[in-house]
Design a binder for these strands. Structure first.
Lengths: 338, 338
DNA sequence: TTGTACGCGTTATCAC
DNA sequence: GTGATAACGCGTACAA
C-alpha cells in the first residue's frame, strides 16, 4: 500500500513527543486540557515534522468533512463569478472547504451526482442542477441542503435563497410601456426549467395584461441566459422578418450582450428603434453601449446567504425556510431614457 | 457515534446479497471478475439500498481522493469565471472533484493552506497564492502541483501554465506609439508580486526604449487588476494634475472598466484625448464604449491545460514543464483606431 | 471465483 | 491529565 508513505501521522508525533496518540489528538482538538509542558512539546514536534491531520481519517472518525458542496450545471458565464465569490467567502470564514461540481440530472441513466453525503456535510444546489427525485431523497436522509435560485419540490421542506423576479420584471416592462411607449416587446426566456425565467415571464405577462396588450406567444424567444444563443436566435428571428418588435427583455445581462450585437449587426439602433433591458446588473452592464437598463440582483449576497444558512443547518440550528432578496430597477440608456 | 447512522455501507450490501464485502468491492471497482449472477444481485441491491461508497473510507484505504484542489487569493473579478470553467470542465471529464480554496500566505503566522496532500491528489496554484516556501515543501514531498500564471521558485521543478505577457504588451504599446503617436503612456500595474504584471511592465519598458522614450517612474500607477482600485487611483492622479498622459495601459480589462469611468467622469475623451488599452479580452471588452483594444488571453484554455497536466502528473506521467499560451492583440476603438 | 482478516489515520470511550 | 483500544467504511493480500 502506501504508495507515497511519506506522510507523517499522529502516531509519529505521539512517539516523538513521548505521549500517546490520544493525548496528541486531545491537544489538536482542544477537547481535553493537556499539561502545559506536554502541549508545548507536541506543538513543537508538529511544527518540526510538518504534521497535517489526514482529512479522510478524520472524516471517517468524526462523520464530518468540514466541506460544503456546490452543484450547478455549468459555470460558463460571468454570472457565476459573484455567486462563487460570495459562497467561497462565507465558507472559508467558517473554516469550511468548498467542493464544486457541475452536474445535470440525466433523464435516462440514473447516475449519482458527484457530491453528496459521502463527501460533504451539506450542499448548495443551484437552480435545476438536481432533479426533484434527488432532492427528495437527500432531504429525507436529513442531508443539509440549501437551494439557490429555485424552490423545493412540493411538500419537501428545503430552505432556498433566490431573488425577486416577478415584480422587478413587471416594473421594467411597465417602464418600457409607460415611459417609452413600447408595445411589441420580445420576451427572451432562459432555460424553461429554470424558475427565474418562469417568474420573469409572469411579470412580463402581468404587465402586458395591465396595459391591455394581448399576449402573443410569437413574442417569446429562447435566449438560454447565454449571449451566443441569444445572438443566434435573435439573428434568425430578424432574418425571418415575421415579427416586428420595438423592445426586448433579454432574460439576463449575458443574453443582452448577444442581443445588442445582433441588433447592431442588423442595423437596428438601440434605443432609437428598439429598447433593450436585461436582468442581473452584472459588472459589464453599466459599460455597454448603450449602458444597459436592467434589474439589479444581489448575486454575491445570494451566495453568502445561502452558505450561511447551510452552515446553520449543518450545526442543526433552525433556519428561515425562504429568503427572497430584493431586486431593483437600474435605469440607464438602453431603454431610451436620458 | 454515528450521529446520523442512516448510511448504508458495503457490509449491508454484502449481507443482503449473501456475499462477502470483498466481492461487492470487487464488483464496484471491477478489480476482479465476479460471477454474472452475483454481479446482477449486487447491482440490484445497491440500487435498492441507494448505496454510495463512502469517500473518506475509500480515500483512507486507497490513498487517493479523486479530488484536485485549486488555490487562489480571491475570485472577485470576472477573470475567474473562464478559468474556473475550464478547470471544472477538464476535471469532471476525468471524474475528478474540484476543491476550491482562497488563501493568501500570511507573512507572519505560518498557517497552512486549507487544501493539500491531506485532502487532494494534487493542486493547481494560481499566481502568488502560495509562498515559495509552501511550494518548495509540497514539491519536495512529491505532491503533484501545477502553477497557473506564475513560474516556480528557482531550482524547483513544477510545471506551469501561463500566457505570453511581454511580447503582447510590447506590441500593444508599440501600436500606441507608432500608430497613434502617443508618447506619455501611463502603465497601470497589477499586484507587484504577480508575474503577469512584471512581464507586462517589461514589455512596456522595452517598447519605450525602442522608441527612444525615456522611462518615467511617475508613469507607473497601481491598478491591482481591479476596477475599483484603478478608478480611485486614476481619479487621484488626475486630481493632482501633476502628470500629463495621452494613453493608458490598464493592466487588465477589469481595471480598464475603472479607468474608462474615471476618464469619463473627468471629462477626458477616449480615444480622442487618451488612448486606453487593456489585457485579457474578457467578455465585456468588445462591448465597452469605446470598444476596448486589448490583448486576448486564452484564460479558459489555461484552466484546461493546467488541469490536464495536473491529472497526468497524478497518474505519474511525465509532463511538459512549461506551457506558454500565445496571446494576440485585438484592435478595437479605445486605442484610436477606425 | 470467493471469503477472511488486516490496515489506512483519526477520534472517542473507557479505564487509570 | 493520560494511555490503551475499539470503532469508522473500504480495499486488498492471502488463502481457499
Amino acid at each position: 500500500m502506501t504508495r507515497r508513505s511519506d506522510s507523517v501521522t499522529i502516531r509519529d508525533v505521539a512517539r516523538h513527543a513521548g505521549v500517546s496518540v490520544a493525548t496528541v489528538s486531545r491537544y489538536i482538538n482542544q477537547t481535553t486540557p493537556v499539561s502545559l509542558e506536554v502541549a508545548e512539546r507536541i506543538q513543537q514536534i508538529m511544527l518540526d515534522m510538518n504534521f497535517q491531520p489526514h482529512a479522510a481519517a478524520r472524516h471517517l472518525a468524526t462523520k464530518r468533512t468540514n466541506t460544503i458542496g456546490l452543484i450547478l450545471h455549468n459555470m460558463h458565464t460571468d454570472f457565476f463569478a459573484p455567486l462563487l465569490s460570495g459562497i467561497q467567502a462565507e465558507a472559508s470564514e467558517a473554516q469550511y472547504n468548498l467542493l464544486v461540481a457541475t452536474y445535470k440530472s440525466p433523464k435516462l441513466n440514473n447516475s449519482q451526482p458527484p457530491i453528496g453525503p459521502h463527501n460533504t456535510d451539506g450542499m448548495l444546489v443551484f437552480a435545476d442542477s438536481l432533479s426533484e427525485e434527488h432532492l427528495t431523497t437527500l432531504c429525507q436522509d436529513q442531508f443539509p441542503l440549501v437551494l439557490i435560485h429555485r424552490t423545493p419540490p412540493v411538500n419537501i421542506n428545503i430552505p432556498f435563497v433566490t431573488v425577486e423576479n416577478k415584480a422587478a420584471t413587471r416594473n421594467i416592462i411597465d417602464h418600457l410601456i409607460e415611459v417609452h411607449n413600447r408595445r411589441s416587446i420580445l420576451f427572451m426566456h432562459g432555460p424553461r426549467e429554470q424558475e427565474d425565467s418562469q417568474w420573469r415571464e409572469q411579470g412580463y405577462r402581468e404587465s402586458l395584461t395591465a396595459h391591455g396588450i394581448a399576449f402573443n406567444p410569437n413574442m417569446l424567444i429562447d435566449g438560454e441566459f447565454n449571449g451566443e444563443v441569444a445572438y443566434r436566435n435573435l439573428k434568425d428571428l430578424i432574418a425571418e422578418g415575421k415579427h416586428q418588435f420595438d423592445a426586448i427583455f433579454t432574460g439576463d445581462d449575458d443574453a443582452a450582450l448577444g442581443v445588442l450585437t445582433a441588433l447592431d449587426e442588423s442595423g437596428i439602433q438601440v434605443p432609437r428603434d428598439v429598447s433593450v433591458v436585461g436582468f442581473d446588473d452584472s459588472r459589464l452592464s453599466a459599460f455597454l453601449n448603450p449602458a444597459l437598463t436592467t434589474v439589479r440582483a444581489p448575486t454575491q449576497e445570494v451566495g453568502r446567504r445561502a452558505t450561511s444558512l447551510l452552515l446553520q443547518l449543518i450545526k442543526n440550528q433552525p433556519v428561515k425556510p425562504e429568503t427572497l432578496l430584493p431586486t431593483e430597477i437600474i435605469i440607464r440608456r438602453s431603454c431610451g431614457c436620458q
